[in-house]
Simulated scan of single mutants.
Amino acid sequence: MGRTKTKYELITNEIARKATLKKRKAGLLKKLSELTTLCAVPACAIIFSSYDAQPDVWPSRTEACQVLEKLESLLEKQRGKNMMDQTILLKRNILQLNDRLEKQQKKNLDLEKELALVESMAGASNCDWNNLEQLNELSCRLQENIEFVSNMIEFKSG
């Protein structure tokens, strides 16, 4: 059985909210402990709550201060590699989407050329025969197809 999807909204019952915070905090700290043990990475957690006067600090205040000092002592360039804000994330996503768009546009152009080739071979072409560029592209596509078929014939016979 799969888990049901959790609705993420404010828990209106104060007692239930406090109990959920306590359970989730314990789970988070357990996962953080596992991460530091299994992967041998320094980590800390500081959890602020409206129920407690002091924030919860894991593993201890001194160890958390050491981790934060180590983070601050990294060079700006190294810190930039490990940290990301909303603008950096959006820029990276835009670059990835632009790359995907360029690849899709190239694929569409190749499909249009293939369609023009098929239509011209069938005799019902929408191709402008006076356009030298289209004719050159059609010629290149035909040459590629001829080479492909020739290679397939050689492979099958050899």
Rank of each mutant, 00 (worst) to 15 (best):
D52E: 15
K70S: 10
L101D: 09
E63D: 13
E137Y: 04
P55I: 07
C127P: 00
I153E: 08
C65V: 05
K106V: 04
R3I: 11
I47G: 07
M152G: 00
E63Q: 15
N93Q: 11
Q78A: 11
C140Q: 11
N82G: 14
E34I: 03
N126K: 01
A122W: 08
E147D: 11
F148I: 03
N98D: 06
D128N: 15
A43E: 05
K18E: 15
D99L: 06
N108T: 09
L97P: 00
K107C: 02
T6A: 14
R100K: 14
C39Y: 15
I11G: 06
S73I: 02
I46Y: 09
C39W: 14
L29H: 10
S73K: 11
L117A: 03
V118Q: 04
F48C: 07
D99K: 06
L142D: 00
I146L: 13
E34C: 06
P42R: 10
E114A: 00
N126I: 01
N82M: 15
C39V: 15
K31P: 01
G80W: 06
D85L: 13
N151Q: 10
L138D: 04
R17E: 10
A64K: 03
V149G: 02
E147T: 02
K107W: 05
L38C: 09
L29M: 14
I146E: 12
S150D: 15
Q54L: 13
L38I: 07
Q96A: 12
S60E: 05
N98G: 00
S125L: 02
K91F: 04
L74T: 03
A40E: 14
G80R: 12
Q96G: 04
A116N: 05
C127D: 00
R92H: 04
I15Q: 15
E72V: 07
T37L: 12
T20D: 11
M121G: 00
L32G: 13
L75K: 07
L101C: 14
Q104C: 08
K5T: 13
S150E: 15
E34H: 07
N108C: 04
V57H: 06
L90N: 08
S50M: 05
S139L: 09
E137M: 07
Q104R: 13
Q96S: 13
Q78Y: 07
D110Q: 11
L97E: 09
A53Y: 07
M152W: 04
V149T: 11
E147Y: 05
D110P: 01
L135V: 13
V57Y: 07
T36W: 09
I11A: 08
S139A: 13
I47R: 07
M152A: 10
L90V: 07
Y8E: 10
S125K: 01
T62E: 14
M83G: 08
R100T: 09
E76V: 12
G123R: 00
T87M: 10
G123C: 01
E144S: 10
A45K: 11
T62Q: 12
L35H: 11
A124Q: 05
A116R: 02
N93H: 03
T20G: 01
L111Q: 03
K106I: 01
L21T: 09
D52C: 10
E102Y: 08
K70I: 03
R141V: 02
A19C: 06
L115Y: 02
N131T: 02
K113G: 00
W129A: 01
P42N: 13
Q96P: 02
A26G: 08
A40P: 00
F155E: 06
N126D: 02
E34G: 04
T37R: 14
L38H: 11
E34N: 08
S33L: 06
S150L: 13
K106F: 03
R92C: 01
N130Q: 14
